[in-house]
Design a protein around this nucleic acid. Structure first.
Lengths: 195, 195
DNA sequence: AACTTCACTTGACATAGGTCAATTTTATTT
DNA sequence: AAATAAAATTGACCTATGTCAAGTGAAGTT
């Protein structure tokens, strides 16, 4: 956790947009490097999400707690993915979510003001996020559809296939919540699936 | 359907980004105006979604048909909203969706090439879509969460409150599908809700 | 190593919502 | 206006998943 590692942000940005060497340094210098310990929170309800986070190495979950005190997980993200409460970040209004490290995590972060500045400085970064959000939107629609019309066992099998790593790094309870079912149901699904 | 009406695209773009008069005409001239009759398709499965559509006046639904022959609706959109299969449009690969007019509809449309050109010409348009997709993404996450953890009756009441117009313009069967339930269930929910 | 906490499993039972089939109501077409 | 098709309702029954409670196992802490 002490030695800062190289981040792959530029590599991933370049997958979608063309940027100059100058853009690269403008982007990198807009971020601060930091880290957080397992089980610690980057954000708690009531706080404004002041930063957008790019995970260099580690694991982050976003969740909220409903009226009955039950946790519901929005996403679980690993290395080289973004985390943050976009709504609170964009509007700079209080969030209702927890953002928590599930592993010791290294990240880089950017504030709203700095990001807005960067968008002006490097229009390609605007485009990068346009593409990213478009993809996130399409993926979420698919996740929604699967939740509406596919049985939980199919969603489970899909996850096994698409994110096998998840089962190595994340407790089943959290995976269940992400899949939209209870831990008990996931346990039964897994039992059935192994027979 | 014959007299072309003014579209409000510029008005809605300006809600989110600053554009010059020149940008305005660049944007408007990139679109073609057209219309489609009720029950006709803008897109059918297997086709590439060649255009992104901005609805000037009317109503459009996006849906697919599953293995069992059942329709599932992704969205229902009215005046001054976008429609299209983003995934197919962006990748220029065949779609699996139907996009159908639920009313006689006037729209403007833009092709992938023309839009890419426009993004280069007017960077603010890139930003406009970045903001739009971000909002769409956040909204879809909320819709997903409601579908996972809230009972259908709450989703129904929410829709009554947020989109009362929907019930005037769209058959209940479609609304049911959008809410992630069967028409029978929606019928029962409505009965219960009226007593 | 013992203690405590958290994660996972299992069983008995409950329930929201689905399925299928029949019927009524409302729209659309001739 | 009559004929037809489409949409909505209702009933009987079914099933996937939730709920609650108990028990086991694994992991982290002192």
């Amino acid at each position: 956790m002490t030695t800062p590692e190289e981040n792959k942000l530029i590599y991933y940005v370049k997958k979608w947009v063309n940027i100059t060497k100058d853009d690269e340094s403008a982007i990198l210098s807009a971020f601060e490097q930091a880290s957080i310990r397992k089980k610690k929170d980057l954000l708690v309800p009531g706080e404004i999400c002041k930063y957008n986070y790019f995970i260099v190495k580690g694991c982050i979950r976003t969740y909220y707690i409903d009226d009955k005190g039950v946790e519901h997980i929005y996403h679980i993200r690993f290395d080289n993915n973004w985390a943050g409460d976009l709504e609170s970040f964009f509007s700079q209004k209080p969030s209702k979510y927890y953002i928590e490290a599930l592993e010791d995590t290294q990240y880089i972060r950017i504030s709203k003001d700095r990001l807005d500045q960067l968008y002006d400085e490097v229009p390609a970064f605007d485009r990068y996020f346009r593409i990213l959000f478009q993809k996130a939107y399409v993926n979420t629609l698919k996740r929604l559809n699967a939740n509406m019309w596919e049985p939980a066992i199919d969603r489970y099998k899909d996850m096994l296939k698409e994110h096998p790593d998840m089962f190595q790094r994340v407790p089943l309870t959290y995976i269940a919540s992400y899949l939209g079912i209870t831990p008990e149901s996931l346990s039964r699904i897994r039992k059935k699936n192994n027979q």
